[in-house]
Design a protein around this nucleic acid. Structure first.
Lengths: 293, 293
DNA sequence: AGATATTTGTTCGTATGTATT
DNA sequence: TAATACATACGAACAAATATC
């Protein structure tokens, strides 16, 4: 009745139409979170331990643990073993938030154009917002990224590090945007660009012109930033992104279709995992009730 | 070595420094996700069932279930009971993604200024991006939101519905932005505004001037949109947000400090929950082994 | 429509690992 | 070092949901 919506326009603030009946563990997670917020807990405060939770919500150990798992995955609590252990309320770490949002774009077929269009909007604004908050350490770090880029162009740094450095430059600026919402958007955009575009761009050798442009632009931008010339810095950034976007499109870069998080891509042995799951067994298996020699 | 970072600048693509030893269920969740991506599964495809997963990863039922729970919470899989049931790969629903990201801003102390600053950047761009993709149904829906606003001003619609309609107008436009990344940012910004600002703004009666401005601006914007006049529509939107931002600041609106998700705020009996947990017991408790009769 | 088989959901009891004291 | 408190993990059984016949 009070709901207004065009065909596929979901109403704001409406959540998971549960096609299946809500599970008990989900209900408990919800209730627990509500309880935590309403009792005014702050980050660091302890939640009741598992036994108490079992009593409070009338679930078994396994169920309560699944509920806790839910909150843990969302980055809302951390849980540790030992005396004084248990679940503690936490601030959601920034990387966790990005990690949680990334899969949403898995099947969205984001291409370089979409990402660069977004950067074109955000990065100049970002520069204006951050320029008065950049520290000496930031400038030093930014210059370091440029050095790595130079090394990369001459083969003295590996391509992955080179690419990372290019984006790290933007990350350093983004990190000084005071507005948490805007800041997150800036950082996440670079994160997603890094996640999706790195591999192919790095593999191909033809990005020399691209790399050259990046260094040149970054140097100019640093100068404007140090002079605290917001207008010029913003304008340079706009031109930089615009130019880079054009070059990237020319490079006809391919994306990994099922783009894998950097966390995985970094640590993985893809081959081993694909060829046989036998490769898996990080721990020698708890062996709870096996004879121990 | 290859890592370059200013003081608190986290490197892009780096993830949860695990302060505690990784849990087995987390490892399994990670491996499973990797396996799913590498075997080229598409949304809708089935994952192995619990029994198989236990063999694949060498964990007990409970452990495997916690891993599955992790993926489920992230919106990556849905799991159903019955024959041909089990976990299926899914596209992460948009509302799920927003839900996951929202808690990150719990303790960020976002204020109206920050949100409106972000809208000021995004909304005019959003208008340009969406203008060629708005349908007749969209215009109809937008006009309906305006009607509700008018009703609200005259007390014929409840304040909550009134406020929702105001934002729904923007949501309809945002929903037609083709760029998935930009679209998400626009929608999420409105979502967070709705989550944080609604209650107080609605409670206070003094928003009449605000409501009046909104209706006026929205009517003008619709006209420009229907004329497919991107420049004018964008400019009107910019003015609209700027004006609204000023009025909102004057209204000195308070936020709920521990802002509770709409999903919760909607369904909750806060009082009941606070006064006594006894109020909780959505199901009469499985009563697995209790006498039944 | 009803019975049945399949697969997840939940429970209990118990053992193991780990950090604090 | 030993005792303690807590999470982590295992395994077997039963409950509930759902597709198929």
């Amino acid at each position: 009745m009070s709901e207004i919506r065009a065909d596929n326009t979901p109403a704001i603030g409406r959540y998971a139409r549960q096609r299946t009946r809500a599970k008990r563990s989900d209900l408990i997670a919800e209730e627990l979170l509500r309880w935590v917020l309403l009792t005014g807990k702050s980050p660091g405060d302890r939640l009741p331990q598992e036994k108490e939770l079992m009593e409070m919500f009338g679930g078994s150990r396994g169920t309560v643990r699944e509920a806790l798992k839910s909150l843990e995955v969302q980055g809302l609590v951390e849980v540790v073993t030992g005396p004084n252990g248990g679940a503690r309320l936490t601030r959601v770490p920034e990387d966790r938030a990005m990690q949680l949002l990334t899969p949403y774009f898995y099947f969205k077929d984001l291409d370089a154009e979409a990402i660069y269009q977004t950067r074109l909007v955000l990065e100049p604004v970002m520069v204006r917002a951050a320029i008065d908050h950049l520290t000496e350490a930031d400038f030093t770090a930014m210059r370091q990224t440029i050095e790595v880029c130079c090394d990369g162009m001459e083969g003295r740094a590996n391509p992955a590090a080179h690419r990372a450095a290019e984006l790290q430059f933007h990350h350093i600026i983004a990190n000084r945007v005071p507005n948490a919402l805007l800041r997150f958007f800036c950082i996440f955009t670079n994160h997603i660009l890094y996640s999706m575009v790195t591999p192919k761009a790095v593999v191909q050798g033809e990005q020399h012109a691209f790399a050259h442009h990046v260094v040149h632009a970054h140097v100019e931008i640093i100068e404007a930033l140090e002079a605290r010339d917001a207008k010029r810095a913003s304008m340079l950034m706009l031109e930089h992104i615009r130019t880079a976007a054009g070059m990237v499109e020319d490079m006809e870069m391919a994306f990994h279709q099922a783009f894998i998080d950097q966390s995985m891509a970094a640590s993985l042995d893809i081959i081993a995992t694909v060829t046989g799951m036998s490769a898996f067994d990080p721990r020698p298996k708890p062996a709870s009730r096996q004879t121990k020699d």
